[in-house]
Design a binder for these strands. Structure first.
Lengths: 196, 196
DNA sequence: GCATTTTGTAAGCGCTTACTTACATATTAA
DNA sequence: TTAATATGTAAGTAAGCGCTTACAAAATGC
């Protein structure tokens, strides 16, 4: 891949921000350049076209999943405590990737193959990692008998939806419960269930 | 509200479709008209401007929440069976509103107040309805002690996330488990938990 | 059968967009 | 100190967009 200069890097950062907030069409090359603090003609010296810039943004900011590295850290923790740590870290990772997630949701139909590939790689890694963790605990008879894949989907799903409503749909302005209370409540329900 | 003619109705349907797949900026009035099978000049005879058309689309296709009407139907069912019915109906309602949901996700930053209001009204109604149901069952000592609001968020969240990945991010092309298996698995986990 | 309403066709305006060319200036490297 | 490289300024092109005007044609209503 082309080595990025300082100017090129600023262009990419500006582009990610504007592509994710305005969409591909709504983000003009004029505005991307201005936001990056350069002349528009300079943008076209670094990137052949707007479309190539968009592709570079996707390549540069694709997900770097890291839940795998987290599991050894919670291996010796009690199950419920471990799940809370995983939920909190997952939320933090999503928050760091907020702009890329917004970009994928907004433009998934403009570049379906690429964006779905990025997203799927990310989701599959998460799901498989968490499902593997559940399988291990089931072998140790710590967990009940349920489909680990579905369990992973359920858990990540409720956390992602909460992240989505708080950070992307900005409901956090109207929320009374803290993130900690909410994630803790999710974990409690996931671990203990809701029936008597 | 202005009474919609047949032509006006087709324009609105075409606009919803193109606004949700291409975004507000990416959906041109030329294409909206063509897709509706009319001349572009006719579009401007029915709607003062592109922006007024967009607003009419929001007003016309705002959510019509209907989970409330469902609860009496499941009141006498066993808890787990009732939850599966609720999950299935919720998924169906989301599927019917797929384009509006896509529109909200894509354009929430262009029209934050309006779109967030629509979405929040929808989500609040769902959450409150489901939380009320949980409270009733808790009073009857059928459910454990947990925050009904957080329970509602967790349940709706995992269902929505699954819907989002299947129907909007189109992962269903790569999915082996059926929707029924997945929702059933979600409900089982939600009701019984995952710990032994 | 005629009047009214609705829509189509055609042309166009003013503006914006992505992108290019040419020359000047600033910065960096030799 | 000079050469090379990177960027800025200015002007411009071609295409497309939202929207309008004028007239013709089709559909509807009385």
């Amino acid at each position: 891949m082309q080595e990025q200069t300082y100017t090129g890097q600023r262009i990419l950062e500006s582009a990610l921000h504007l592509f994710s907030t305005r969409g591909y069409v709504g983000a003009t090359t004029r505005e991307i350049a201005k936001n990056a603090g350069i002349a528009e003609v300079t943008l076209f010296r670094h990137f052949e076209s707007k479309e190539k810039l968009f592709e570079s943004v996707l390549n540069t900011y694709s997900f770097l999943p890291a839940l795998k590295g987290l599991l050894p850290q919670v291996a010796d923790k009690p199950y419920e405590e471990a799940m809370l740590t995983i939920a909190t870290r997952f939320y933090e990772k999503l928050t760091h990737r907020k702009e890329m997630i917004k970009l994928i949701q907004a433009e998934v139909q403009r570049y379906p193959e690429k964006l779905l590939s990025i997203h799927k790689t990310f989701v599959d890694e998460l799901r498989q990692t968490l499902a593997g963790y559940f399988k291990d605990l089931q072998k140790k008879k710590i967990l009940a008998d349920f489909d680990p894949e579905i369990g992973a989907m359920a858990f990540l799903g409720m956390c992602f939806s909460y992240f989505n409503s708080q950070e992307i749909l900005m409901h956090k302005k109207h929320t009374q419960k803290t993130k900690e209370e909410t994630l803790s409540g999710f974990v409690k329900i996931f671990v203990r269930g809701t029936a008597v």
